[in-house]
Write a protein that binds this DNA or RNA. Structure first.
Lengths: 199, 199
DNA sequence: TGATTTGTTCTCCCCTGGTTCTCTATTCTA
DNA sequence: TAGAATAGAGAACCAGGGGAGAACAAATCA
């Protein structure tokens, strides 16, 4: 259902101030905060929000103006899919969330990918491991990064950036490093943590 | 259940003053403290708190207003210390707790140790990694276990149990497996997960 | 055991606050 | 430009929240 301008205004006020109130506000308090003089007018708006499913119906209970539980902040960080050298990231249809120790998180947003293949095995990253990736578009030489190559292949490699070229080093004695021009390689994130499940 | 404003007020008063009382307060004392003149009125509020599960039901016992212990669910599993081949587990003085994805947990209690040394490097377990250990006293051949050897040395190795002897295999080409009698090796847990932090 | 606390129940009452209604002003739209 | 939609004011209504106090019963104390 479409909100009117005023309804949206009031809804946003409620959103912004949800934590300011120690108790849900009464109609009178809200009227004052919103510059209304009539409880009746406010009630009409609140009623519209209830019908739109944004506010809990409050059947005569006092101080009952409560926002509908927004999708509770899903704990953890999203598990997005799997990464295998030479293919695009294979996304899961429904992102799941994984609880990750804070020690493995950076300040920037992070996500989790599952590693396919053995290209980083000498760095202790095995087939099936989960890697925590911090979203960044730049990296320092020596970092292990998720890189998008030629706009189609995603890969997890150690990066070496030199003037005029970018080298992606696997960590596998049986594989060789690859050379690219800088504009062929887009850094999508930097390896920040690793999770492995046995059994 | 949602508390009314007054109920929340009283509950917070109880929380704030829980330690001030040498014994749980009587209704009369609380009335005085809260500025109420009627025990009956207070009783209604306390009753609501009991129904909300915040106050112990006090079936007619005198001076019985007691808060329900809010067993705050300690998030995560304990980080106990570090394990290095050939030494006892070095315990941290104050166990910290780490958030660990459910995928790495078993049904039994788990704890976290930090790995010191390179003895399992060929299994992708590096110096500094955190391992999630499930408490068990037995393991299957091939499992990586925390084993207490000769009642003094703790070590993380792949186990092979044969009639009359136990072999602990490192995963490092430059190290050799060790043979023990079964009673010299006590299994303390089985490797269940691994966490690694880069940077 | 009798007196005193103290928890419980109940009834009465007032005020706050949600609801409903009507009336009016303004803005938008066909 | 007329009618609809949107907004607000304010009155009236009444249920819920909160308190007072009496009466009672169980626990505790002297």
């Amino acid at each position: 259902m479409q909100l009117t301008k005023r309804q949206a205004e009031i809804y946003h006020y409620l959103l912004d101030n949800a934590d300011h109130f120690d108790h849900p506000p009464s109609h009178d308090e809200l009227c004052q905060a919103l510059g209304l003089r009539s409880r009746g007018s406010l009630h009409k708006h609140i009623q519209a929000l209830v019908e739109a499913g944004l506010v809990e119906p409050m059947d005569r209970t006092h101080r009952g103006i409560r926002l509908v539980e927004q999708a509770e902040p899903e704990a953890g960080i999203p598990f997005l899919g799997s990464i295998a050298a030479g293919r695009p990231i294979e996304a899961v249809t429904q992102p799941e969330f994984m609880q990750v120790p804070e020690e493995l998180l950076g300040t920037r947003p992070c996500y989790v990918l599952q590693v396919r293949g053995d290209s980083m095995i000498d760095a202790g990253i095995l087939d099936g491991d989960y890697v925590v990736i911090e979203q960044r578009d730049s990296a320092r030489n020596g970092d292990i990064v998720v890189a998008l190559v030629n706009n189609e292949e995603a890969t997890l490699k150690r990066i070496e950036q030199q003037p005029g070229r970018v080298i992606l080093h696997p960590a596998n004695a049986s594989m060789t490093a690859m050379n690219y021009t800088p504009d062929a390689v887009v850094i999508q994130g930097v390896l920040r943590g690793l999770l492995r499940s046995y059994y």
